[in-house]
Design a protein around this nucleic acid. Structure first.
Lengths: 335, 335
DNA sequence: CCTCGTTTCTACAACGTTGTAGGCAACGTT
DNA sequence: AACGTTGCCTACAACGTTGTAGAAACGAGG
């Protein structure tokens, strides 16, 4: 019961191409012809076959967003903004969950979705510049710091500056034993490395020692990892009076661990996160955090992709920076 | 720089169809021919054009999952399970965010994605059975209760039973003034209606009064709505000793409002939610909740879709039920 | 050596769409 | 009256793939 241009054409008594012209808004169609065709389209509930159109035009109107995990709130929120921004360009967004592994990301990047999508917005965790080097295919925009001098357009935020600023805020509150949660040894942790650098900068600027014992690694950045890292810090005897968690889910886990240990936030330990996810506005206590402008990140990424699609595909890669601000809530402020 | 079957065929010195046969795993190909073709494929980094394949075969290997909002944790978690379950069938999942409005949902259902996807898993909020009646198109599986006697396959959970059970748990704790948060007046609130019914059943079964003043509506089911509803209950003077929130985000908002009012959970007020989202395992206190088997919901939905695609499209609609269990945590239990 | 069946491969057409080229009529200009 | 221009429409081919039909090569059985 699905109809084609041909069916509409027969019903309206015109050629297939004329129907195509009406569908595509071609100007030179007589008003009465147009009306007849539109009537036939409505009667048959005709919808163009996107695959056929793509095959002919080379465009699908679909872009993909590839993120490591959808149930990490930051990515879910980002996905929402990307869908919204893409809608302004008439694009549908296919969301792909990579799982974050290098091999899976390679598969996505090298284009399992190839030929179905016009472009890709990609937030890689494990992928390296070499993995991307051999790709001739789909235009791509990268999010985040992972691929340092990759061949593709990028949208980043100033991780070092943001980390320095929020650590500086803790110092300004009079805290002196400031822990960090979320460092990573592997190459995968580009964001971790930059945020750790900013943390170190802020300590140095304030004349504080950088104490290895206060820096807790976290292989993944989930709530459970944050809680485990916090428990580790508490039992190790380093007695922090503040914690900078490298993202909000780590911080929410840390809040939980502090609560279980009977410590008060912020009186005993101040806590800050990074990402400004919805949860942090309702947690107990509410969470101070670095708030990247996610709407702007999404918009910039979509615009970069649009430029790449319409313009020069061989043009040199561009890098745009999105702003952030500090959201100061209860976890650093006594009421 | 993108290659076609023809390029591979020329390089391997065979016909286009033979390459196609190799790509599709056709058996009657001589080993040495196969090897030569595979070598050519590797050298050219050939990837099939999915649009062309779809045009020819009528299948894309892509299904869509349409949910109201991605940054509602329940849907994000569900999306993850659907992606995983679909991978077992070799399907890619396109995730579509409807926004939950009736018109937007109609657009999705009537197939803006038409011709690109083989099937649709749809979690509607506002859509009615009539909206779906006229759809001839893509096979569809519905999630949740909204469309009562729709023409499509469905996966549901026993909302009434689950609500009755968790309310019964509160009664078993000795609570007598049990509030409910999340009721909805509009037709859209099918889940709300069923959960409210289960709540009422449990009260009746225990010989408790159903008190209108203890039932707080919430138009949306976000944290902010839960917090607002809880504040309303507290200022209205009804003094509840327990609250059943119709989902977990409402419950997290309620926890926040109780905290702000200086009430202890669960000592002064016990709180339960519905959905078992990740947040509830780390909130302060951790949240007792109804845990629907999301993995099972996703698997059943994908299987229903697979049956519909491979089997009889005109077969009568089926309805499958997924199990749930109670997750009892701190918000109903003193340590 | 012939016949028959199987294996291996190829030519062709078709999926639904749109770009290109072109035809025909109506119009305005010389 | 002849001409070019414009508006409106159509026929055809092509996008990259695979199903169908069948040709060619090969082996087994008589």
């Amino acid at each position: 019961m699905r109809h084609r241009l041909k069916d509409v054409a027969e019903r309206a008594g015109v050629s297939v191409k004329t129907v195509s012209n009406v569908v595509n808004g071609y100007v030179h169609v007589r008003p009465d012809t147009r009306a007849r065709v539109e009537e036939a389209i409505a009667e048959l509930n005709y919808r163009p076959n996107l695959s056929a159109r793509h095959l002919r035009k080379g465009r699908t109107g679909v872009i993909a967003l590839a993120v490591p995990e959808l149930d990490i709130p930051y990515f879910a929120e980002l996905a929402r903004y990307v869908v919204t921004a893409a809608a302004d360009f008439g694009w549908t967004v296919l969301i792909d969950q990579t799982g974050g592994g290098r091999e899976q990301e390679r598969v996505v990047a090298s284009g399992i979705t190839d030929h179905l999508i016009d472009g890709l917005i990609f937030s890689p965790l494990a992928l390296t510049a070499e993995d991307l080097a051999g790709l001739d295919g789909t235009p791509m925009v990268l999010l985040g710091e992972r691929v340092d001098h990759g061949p593709a357009d990028r949208v980043v935020i100033d991780n070092v500056g943001a980390a320095r600023e929020i650590t500086g805020h803790l110092i300004g509150l009079g805290r002196r034993r400031i822990a960090a949660i979320g460092s990573q040894r592997t190459d995968e942790g580009a964001s971790a490395r930059l945020r750790l650098a900013g943390y170190g900068d802020a300590l140095r600027a304030a004349g504080l020692d950088y104490d290895e014992a206060l820096v807790a690694p976290a292989s993944a950045w989930h709530r459970a990892d944050g809680a485990a890292a916090m428990r580790g810090l508490l039992t190790s005897g380093v007695r922090p009076d503040a914690v900078f968690c490298f993202n909000d889910t780590l911080a929410l886990g840390a809040l939980r661990a502090l609560h279980e240990a009977g410590l008060r936030v912020p009186e005993d330990v101040a806590v800050v996160g990074f990402d400004d996810i919805e949860d942090g506005r309702f947690s107990i206590p509410t969470l101070s955090t670095v708030a990247p402008d996610k709407a702007q990140i999404a918009r910039l990424a979509v615009e970069l992709l649009a430029n790449r699609l319409d313009g020069d595909r061989a043009a040199p890669a561009r890098e745009l920076s999105a702003p952030y601000r500090l959201e100061l809530r209860e976890s650093t402020q006594t009421p």
